[in-house]
Design a protein around this nucleic acid. Structure first.
Lengths: 214, 214
DNA sequence: CCTCGCATCCACCGATCGGTGGATGCGAGG
DNA sequence: CCTCGCATCCACCGATCGGTGGATGCGAGG
């Protein structure tokens, strides 16, 4: 593990890990540094901390979580892409498999999208693929980007209404809270039901939780 | 890290890790073996695999997840306790903070209960505490065991009803499905609302998901 | 011009929900 | 005997929901 690369080997891929959970950061570091061809050159607990860490370490690949209290991944990706459209290569590694998250990440400039239950060997291969310039996507991320996946994106307003309803609000109280009419709330809800493939609010809340929309 | 213990140091605490996610297993291994006083002597991906691994490795401490597809933690704890009431010391490390999980784990014979967002230093201390015979609990686990925490355990029947409702069932269809009257369904639901501190089904589903009851 | 999606809104109505009165029986524990 | 919690059940009723008819305006893109 500490052996110098032989004269015929390329230098190890330099990786920075950005994730808010210590267990996950350590797990990823352990997985990657088990490979002689990869070296972890930095870690950060959130998007805010990530930018200076990456600027100092100059990695080839960044593993980026999305939802972190101390600075979300999308914002960090955007900031990185503002200064260099191609480097470092950014792999989003997250628990969220929603169209919205996948799209937002790729639109912001990520080069790959994987879920955190990825087996060790697949993660190592993904890092090398990224370093070699190849994209890395789960099958569902590919479907989301090519439109083959059923669209379940709720608009901001629809989510507003769903949140109030999930907290126990009636249509009437939701209307008062969101400063619209009850008819508007109902319209939004009917759209939510249609998009999520359900017929009532309880089921809508369930699907929203299962898909990490809430 | 590979140095032999000096003549005045106790032998390292031997630990086996049982968790279905590779990232988590590696993260835990990385955290623990960063300590010279701890050595990871085995890993398993589920309760079924854990028993022979533990029998072969004879650890001082087992870190055990609860809900794993290939054999749950409770069953594994019970099996271990059937052959030795005190060894190895078992620390449950999980994302679930429900009364039911905490109680089931401790009743089965676990010696500690922590959540997976535990900082590195706290986990290391917990392993040493356990090896020294001391219990290790989160504040909420302690409250759950001493009854200071508000009881939110739903009965089996209440959960049956909640599941049907979360799938979009009406009270009437739930009654038909569960072979009871609609009045019975309503009674169960009212009890669910009371226990979860909500007033309607949508909010009940939300709380159930937030507490991993569903 | 058109269509589309978003956000907003109205009226009506049958179905359903949540709440409030009750009730029974059973087993466990004091 | 009692109380308690669980599971089961009834009737009534006002409030709310979901569905179904519509409608408007705006901006974007063809």
């Amino acid at each position: 593990m500490t052996a110098s690369p032989s004269p015929t080997e390329p230098p190890p891929v330099r990786v920075v890990i950005v994730d808010d959970h210590p267990v996950v950061r350590d797990g990823l570091r352990g997985m990657l540094e088990h490979e002689r061809s990869i070296t972890v050159v930095g870690e950060a607990a959130g998007g805010h901390e990530a930018l200076p860490v990456i600027a100092a370490a100059v990695p080839d690949v960044v593993l980026m979580d999305l939802r972190m209290p101390l600075g979300d991944g999308i914002g960090a990706i955007r900031a990185l892409r503002a200064s260099d459209a191609d480097h470092p290569r950014i792999l989003v590694l997250t628990t969220y498999d929603t169209d919205r998250d996948i799209r937002a990440a790729m639109d912001a400039g990520a080069n790959g999208y994987l879920l955190k239950d990825v087996p060790r060997a697949d993660l190592v291969r993904a890092v090398h693929d990224l370093a070699a310039g190849r994209p890395v996507l789960t099958a569902s991320a590919l479907d989301a980007l090519t439109g083959r996946r059923e669209q379940t994106s709720l608009t901001a307003r629809e989510l507003d209404v769903l949140r109030v309803i999930a907290s126990g609000g009636t249509n009437r109280s939701a209307a008062e809270r969101l400063l619209v009419s009850e008819a508007t709330v109902k319209t939004h809800l009917l759209h939510v039901y249609e998009k999520l493939g359900v017929s009532d609010r309880a089921a809508a809340v369930r699907v929203a939780y299962e898909r990490h929309l809430l």
